[in-house]
Simulated assay, not measured.
Amino acid sequence: MTAPDIDNAVPTLEVRHLRTHFETRAGVLPAVDDVSFTVPRGRILGLVGESGSGKSVTGFSIMGLVDPPGRIAGGEILFQGRELTRMRPAELRQLQGNRIAMIFQDPMMTLNPVMRVDAQMIEAVRAHSPASHKQARELARDTLGMMGIPSPEERLRAYPHQLSGGMRQRVAIAIAMLHRPDLIIADEPTTALDVTIQAQILSEVQKLARLHGTALIWITHDLSVVAGLADEVAVMYAGRIVEQGPVDAVLDHPLHPYTAGLIGSLPSLNQRGQRLRQIPGMTPNLLTMPPGCAFAARCPRVSGACVQAPAITSPQALRQVRCFHPGQPAIAAEFA
């Protein structure tokens, strides 16, 4: 099963000024507000931020899975140059699960509880391929083995409730990888897995990106996962990307104070016996966003300029930041 010929000059995914809003009784909630990024073929983007920052809604928007009262209010989502938001539902379904796949945090969003694993995987293969029943079953078995699942033949005959939570998640990841899609969006899929299995899965998806040219968006709050997996990282806060760039550059020398605070709060960076550093305050309510910079109330660098909303700038090559005072001060001095 091979992917169609792709123009390597065209990025697998381009998101331009995406806005996703939810209509509520209290008003319009801008869950994703002016988000832009590009994921070239074979590259991995880590999308990082606290709960409620808009990471998952961004992923659902790309997949076309935002249901009312949510809606894509503006922007473009280009998959291999094709605008997804203007596609007919039938066209979009041909891409979903085949050329574009999503791995959910809850595996039961993928698995049918009343169908055996083999039936679900064979159905997923044959929905987008002329493979025979035997060929589809062999592909399903081999993909389970690739995910480190022991006795894959036995697991194929099981129902989801007969598997552990970690095993169900690995099956869900295997289903997403069946067709070697051009784009995978992974929404914190390894959170419930032990570190050994997590490392194995991260290695496999990294290999998939390199060998098959799959573009990958890995949505997570875990900076240590992003550090070892991603090529680029985009940090989200209150529905917006506040910093973006090569993963090593961003994690070694954060420009935005929010990124610095996230890195500084990692237990591994705090000295033994000292209090953990943390970002003061709370994420603002998206329904009643303050004017100006959304991070201003929690920011140690706040100034009079921050009453205006900062635009994205590029103070360094390959780096983007949404801040009036980008820099690399000592993290401990900012968030003591």
Rank of each mutant, 00 (worst) to 15 (best):
R86K: 12
M63D: 06
L78N: 13
M63Q: 13
S151Q: 08
V66H: 05
E153K: 15
I100M: 15
Q80S: 13
Q80Y: 10
R141S: 12
G148F: 04
G70Q: 04
A131E: 12
P152L: 05
G145R: 15
L65Q: 12
I72S: 00
S151M: 12
F79D: 00
E76H: 13
Y159T: 05
M87T: 04
L65V: 14
I72K: 07
R82V: 13
E123D: 15
Y159K: 09
S132R: 14
I122E: 01
S61Q: 09
Q80P: 03
R155S: 01
Q135G: 10
P89Q: 12
P68Y: 07
Q120F: 00
A124L: 00
Y159E: 06
P152E: 05
F79W: 13
A127G: 09
L139C: 03
P113C: 11
R93Q: 11
D67I: 15
R155F: 02
M115Q: 09
F60K: 15
S151T: 09
E76W: 09
L156M: 14
V125L: 06
G64M: 00
M109V: 04
T58S: 13
L111R: 09
R82Y: 02
N112S: 09
K55I: 06
A124Y: 06
H128S: 03
K134L: 08
E153Q: 09
M121D: 09
M63E: 08
R82H: 07
V66C: 01
L144Q: 08
G97S: 03
L156S: 10
S61T: 02
E123P: 06
P68Q: 13
R82A: 08
R126H: 07
P130F: 01
A124G: 00
V125C: 06
L84H: 10
G59C: 12
A124P: 00
I122S: 02
D67N: 13
G148W: 04
I77F: 07
E83M: 04
M115F: 12
L139E: 05
K134Y: 14
Q80F: 14
Q96E: 05
L95H: 02
E138F: 09
T143F: 10
L156H: 10
L139A: 11
H133W: 14
P150F: 07
L65K: 14
Q94I: 07
R157V: 01
F60E: 11
G148D: 02
I149S: 03
Q135M: 09
K55D: 05
E153N: 15
L65I: 10
G145M: 10
L92G: 00
L92D: 08
A158W: 07
R99I: 00
Q120V: 04
L78G: 01
M109C: 02
Q135N: 03
A127T: 12
R126N: 01
Q120D: 03
R88T: 07
E138K: 15
G59L: 03
R71F: 14
